[in-house]
């Protein structure tokens, strides 16, 4: 297991490369989903108000 984590002495380069990639992909996906939910909520609120004012 330790041998695997050491990556033949390149651990300091291999793991950051994978960690950074995972981090960036997760953040972009999370932000996109959060934006969609926020916008959907705003839309429902606005269309709700419109219904009431009728």
């Amino acid at each position: 297991m330790n041998e695997f984590l050491e990556m033949g002495g390149y651990a300091a380069f291999v793991w950051p490369a994978y960690g950074l990639s995972a981090g960036v992909l997760v953040v972009i996906a999370w932000l996109s989903i959060r934006d969609l939910k926020n916008t959907q909520n705003t839309f429902e609120k606005l269309s709700g108000e419109k219904e009431k004012s009728k």
């Binding site: 990556m7 033949g8 002495g9 390149y10 380069f13 291999v14 490369a17 994978y18 990639s21």
Partner: peptide
């Protein structure tokens, strides 16, 4: 060596 594994994301 093992550094070539970076290729699979790069």
């Amino acid at each position: 060596g093992e550094s070539a594994r970076i290729m699979y994301v790069h």
